[in-house]
Structure formats: C-alpha cells, structure tokens
Design a protein around this nucleic acid. Structure first.
Lengths: 166, 166
DNA sequence: TTGGAAAGTCAACAAGGCTGACATAAACTG
DNA sequence: CAGTTTATGTCAGCCTTGTTGACTTTCCAA
C-alpha cells in the first residue's frame, strides 16, 4: 500500500508519528486547560469535581441528579459527596421536583453562580487566548477532532448540550 | 468595538458561547482519549499513572527520573510509587548513570515495551479514527489550538519531545 | 397495591495526588 | 579536603475523588 497518496489524498497525517504528537498534545494541553480553575479551587478547599458539577448545573439549571450523574460519568456516591458539600456551603440548591417528587432539581445559588463565573472566566481566558492565537480555521478543526474522539453516548450528550437552547 | 469584524476578520469564534463549546468538547473528548487504555490497565491492576510513565520512558529511553518527573508534572514521591511497581513487575529497568552515577536511567524491558505497545495501539486507534473522520486540515487546527493552550514551560517540553530525534 | 425507579446513605476500599522529614551517594566548589 | 548541592529513594500521613455493595426511603405508575 502506498504511503504517500491514496485516492488522491495524502494520508501522511495518519502516521503513527502524527498520532503520537496528537496524543502528547492532548496530554499536555489538558494540564493547561485545568490549571487556572485548579489554582482558584485549591484556595477554597474545593477540587476539580466541584468545578465540573457547578459547570453543568450552571449550564442546565434545574437538571436532576441523574442527569448530572450521566454528564459527569461518575457514580452517584462519588457525586453525592461533592454535591453535599456544595449544598452545605450554600453554593447549590436542591429542590424536590414538582412533577416527580422523587427527583431533586439542582441550581446554583447567587453565591454558587459567582464562584462558577470566577472559575469559568479563568478557563475561558486561556481558551480565548488559544483560540485567538490559532485563528478561526484552526478552532473549527480543533472542535471537529475532539468531537470525533468522543464515545458515542457521550457525544450525544455533548451535542444536546451544545445545541440545546444555548 | 465592533463585534462582527475587526481588522477585516470576524471574531465571532471568540464569543463566550464558542469558548464554552470548546471547553465542553475538551472535557468530553478527554474521557474518550483515556477510555481505551484505561480499560486495558484496569484488567492488569495498573492505572493511568503507569501508562503515562511508560509512555514517556518509551519515548525517551534512558531518560532520568528527574526528567520524567518534570514531564509528568508530579512529585517524586508520587512517581516513585508507580515506578517501584513497574520495576518490581519487570516492565521498567533502572540503570545507574555511567557519567553521573547519582542518576538513574529508565527504559522499558521487553515485557514493558509489549504492554506499552498494547496501550499505545488502543489509544492510537481512536486518535486515528478521529483524525480520519476530521481530515488533515482539521488535525492541523486541532494541534495548533492545543499547543496554544499549554503552559509555557510545558510547551517547551512538548516541543522538545515533538521535534527531538523523532 | 405492588414493582421498580430515583435518590440518599453507610461502609470500605483504591489510585494517585500532596507535604514533610530524612538517608544516601555522588558530584561539585572553594 | 571539607562542606554544600544534587539526584534519588523512602517512610509516614493526609486529601480528593473514584469504585462496589448493601440498604432505606419515597413515591410514581401500571
């Protein structure tokens, strides 16, 4: 099989060498991705898990515990521990569902929204700098590759979140 | 300031909305990125930390503990725990440096190289599928954005690894 | 009215981060 | 040569965040 061209299109970007660079880029970039919020969180005695929970609660106010569980991909026991501290600290509010009273609907309190904003601002600042440095075409490619890398079920959730009422 | 054009170029890709999508894409994609090796590792009673160590030892055979430490961004105590099990299990070999005998130089054993290959193969398979689905232009953008997202010192290490003798 | 879903809780455990303290050997420096 | 610095390893203890398993309470829906 020719290595330089197949069907008229170069496949050099699929070499193990290229893949390896992508893998290492993902690894190192993810460190940067979480670094800024992590710094803020550690001052407040919270962790990444708290940030993630608050992010999605902010994105979908009133979502149920089950829905959050499925977005985060962790067990309810693990989430519950985080959620309990957030509720105890007055950052998250848990309301019994009106339609189905077994469900708990979660939303950020004023105070929770403020912290979420602070974390989100820091994370967006880095992302914005990266986007600006790379340019719009690169950003489109960035998102395409990431989306293609997701597990199917997770991608469905991502798309729903991405395209639901923004 | 105009929102639609600045210097003749649209900046719509820098809206908070776009940044948010990128942030969520990073989060969900990273799950996919680690999912396949994680499955293999959990069967063998190893974790992600073992994989990361083996990856870089494979990439730079003979690298010192300090160099590995700095690539991974963890403490020596944390790394040592992982390294000790890898050495005990015969996956990694530690040799006293010939020039500076304080240093330990790390390399994969035959057996270690086999496991590394297995993990790497799984991870590359997903990456390859994502690359193929997105196409070469997208892949270039993907890497550009990731590189722009890294911390400076980490980026230097990444570039050295990326461009050092391949 | 009963089955099962949603949620919460308790207990126990593991991985993998962290800090601090200390030991050793080797290399470097004055 | 004496003293300091560097590279590494190790012990002890702590934290976060993940896991499983067992069990309860609530309460909707068939």
């Amino acid at each position: 099989m020719s290595e330089t061209a197949t069907g008229g299109e170069s496949l050099l970007f699929l070499t193990d060498e290229q893949l390896r660079k992508g893998i290492e880029a993902m690894f190192f970039a993810y460190r940067g991705f979480t670094a800024d919020p992590d710094r803020i969180l550690s001052e407040l005695d919270y962790g990444r898990a708290h940030h993630r929970a608050m992010h999605f609660i902010n994105r979908r106010p009133g979502l149920t515990v089950n829905a959050l569980l499925s977005l985060l991909g962790v067990t309810k026991q693990s989430l519950n521990r985080v959620l309990r501290t957030l509720i105890a600290d007055g950052l998250v509010e848990s309301r019994v569902g009106s339609h189905d009273r077994r469900e708990r609907h979660l939303r950020l309190t004023q105070q929770g929204a403020e912290l979420e904003q602070r974390l989100s601002l820091a994370q967006r600042a880095r992302m914005r700098a990266a986007y600006r440095a790379a340019g719009p075409e690169a950003v489109a490619g960035f998102r395409q590759v990431l989306e293609a890398m997701m597990d199917e079920e997770i991608k469905d959730q991502y798309l729903m979140l991405r395209d639901g009422q923004p």
